[in-house]
Structures are given as C-alpha cells and as structure tokens.
C-alpha cells in the first residue's frame, strides 16, 4: 500500500516537473542548434554551442533597446507605485477622514476590471495627451495596475506597526511628514521589498498595454520583442528560440533569488481578490 502511494506521488510530481521544465529546456537547447538541426526535427542535444542564433536575434530585433525600455519602465513603475501606495496606505491606516471607505474601494477596484476592457479608452486618452508611444505612459499604466496589490500589502503591514513609535516622534516635536519619512518608512521596508518585487514582475511581464500603447520599436518592452519575432521573422526559428530564452531568463532568475518576497507578495496580494 505504502509503495503504491509513494510511486503514485512520485509519478504525479514527475509529470508536473516534466511539463513545467521540458518545454523551456527544449527551447534552451534548440536555441544553440543550427537552423538545419532544428528543421530536421531532432529531439536530442545540440551538436555544439552555436551562439549564432543569439547574434541573429539581437541583429533582427532591437532587443537591447527593448531590454533597456523594460528596465526603465520596470524601475520607475515600481518606485512610483511604492511611493503612491505607501503614502495612501499610511493615512488610510492612521488617520480619520470621511471618505476612507471610498478610497479603499478605489484602490481595490483595479482587481475586478479586466485590463482588456480598457484597451480602447486608454489608447484614445493617451493619444489625446501625447502619452501614446512613450515610456512615461507605460509607467503610469503599470503604476495604476499594481495599486491594489501594493496598497493591500502596505495597509496590512502598517497595521502591525505599534502606534507608540510615531507617538514618541510627535512628542519629540517631529511633524507629520518627517514622522512618516523617518519613523514609518524604515520599519515598512519588508513590505516595500514584497510589494516591489511583485510590481516589478508585473511591469516586466506585461504584454497587453505594452502592445496597444506603444507604436514603434524604440519604445517597446521585452515581451513585445517576441510578438515582433512571431509576426516579422517567423521563418528564423533559431533566432526565435534565442529571443524566447533572452526574454524568459530574467524573470526566472528574479524568482529564484527573491523567492521569499515573491511568495509573500503573492500570498498577500491574492487575499483581496
């Protein structure tokens, strides 16, 4: 009985690992194959490390530009999102005011609006105010998209901070802003890490608005590079494989290094859903 159970568990988890890993490993191997090796449909290992595909990929599509854009958008969308949400979360937790319920609702509303519904309105608004095809536009959209999760992470964390610390600061004559900056923010650092990682990954991986709110290759982010390959260079398989690897690797590495923050952020962010 025990043996059967162990075997079944082993089998089930093996299948899970195979379906999760094999497609990626196969693409990774294939990215080092020559085009003729790929076309022959062989399943096996590449004959050597042909980095030619990577060279072609970088030549065909401005991947370096896409990379740069993704980094810029990711960093600024994360910073802006953290600043806006930590400030709002702080006053929602610590201050009394009439429209508190409305503000909380506003910050969680993003969760029930499927982004696809907003494609046309955002496209029109952004064209109207000259934010179409700008990195600033993407930063603003991603900052807004991530507000529900970050706000919730911040609110839950600030609630756990004892108020006596701030009280002591006020008694010592510190003002509202200084207390927030010098007393509250330093303690809130773990929440910043958690929410920041999730927010960065959101901006890094987002596809829909990156596609619809930018027009030319100078302003596009990494996920669009793949769409670019699919539509323009679908015949250069090797380069397509290489591009996929180049896009996927940073997210995987981020996750493996910052696993604790990612897990905590996902757990906290999902509760409100």
């Amino acid at each position: 009985m025990k043996i059967i159970k162990k075997t079944l568990t082993f089998l089930y988890l093996s299948i899970i690992c195979v379906i999760s890993l094999v497609p990626f490993i196969w693409v990774l191997f294939s990215s080092f194959k020559t085009n003729s090796e790929i076309l022959s449909g062989t399943v096996g290992l590449p004959t050597g490390l042909h980095i030619a595909n990577y060279v072609t990929a970088f030549k065909l599509a401005p991947i370096v530009t896409f990379y740069g854009n993704s980094i810029i958008v990711g960093i600024f969308a994360t910073l802006l999102n953290l600043i806006i949400c930590s400030m709002a979360a702080y006053v929602v937790v610590r201050c009394q005011f009439k429209i508190k319920g409305l503000i909380t609702l506003m910050f969680s509303l993003g969760l029930i609006i499927p982004g696809a519904a907003l494609i046309q309105p955002l496209y029109t608004t952004f064209s109207g105010v000259h934010l179409y095809n700008t990195l600033t536009g993407l930063v603003l959209v991603y900052t807004a998209l991530g507000m529900p999760t970050t706000f919730y992470v911040m609110v839950s964390y600030i609630k756990t901070i004892p108020y006596s610390l701030e009280e002591a600061a006020y008694i010592d004559g510190s003002g509202f802003f200084r207390t927030f900056m010098q007393v509250v923010l330093p303690i809130t650092r773990p929440a910043f890490a958690t929410a920041g990682v999730i927010q960065f990954l959101l901006a890094w991986n987002e596809f829909q608005f990156a596609l619809t709110l930018t027009g030319d290759t100078k302003k596009r982010t990494l996920p669009i590079a793949l769409y670019y390959f699919k539509s323009a260079f679908a015949s250069d398989y090797g380069a397509m494989f290489a591009a996929t690897v180049v896009v996927a690797i940073p997210s995987i590495i981020t996750f493996i290094i910052l696993q604790k923050q990612v897990v905590a952020g996902l757990a906290a962010g999902s509760v409100k859903g």
Binding site: I16, C17, S20, L21, V22, P23, F24, W26, V27, S30, I38, L39, S40, G41, V43, L201, W204, N205, E206, F207, L222, P223, I224, L226, Y227, F229, K230, Y237, M240, F241, A243, T244, V247, A248, S251, I252, T254, F255, I256, Q259, V262
Partner: peptide
Amino acid sequence: RTIFFIPNIISSAALGMLFLCVMNPQFGL
C-alpha cells in the same frame, strides 16, 4: 514548488512563444 512556478513567473508572451515552438508542425517537440 520552484519548478512548478516557472511557467507562471515568465512573461505570458514567452510562455506563448514556448508553446508555439513546442507545438510547431515541422520542428516542434
């Protein structure tokens, strides 16, 4: 747990591309 999460953490565009390659009629896995 880490391995199982990899398909969720990469950009969906990359996941779509992975599958497009894996299921390709001529050279797919």
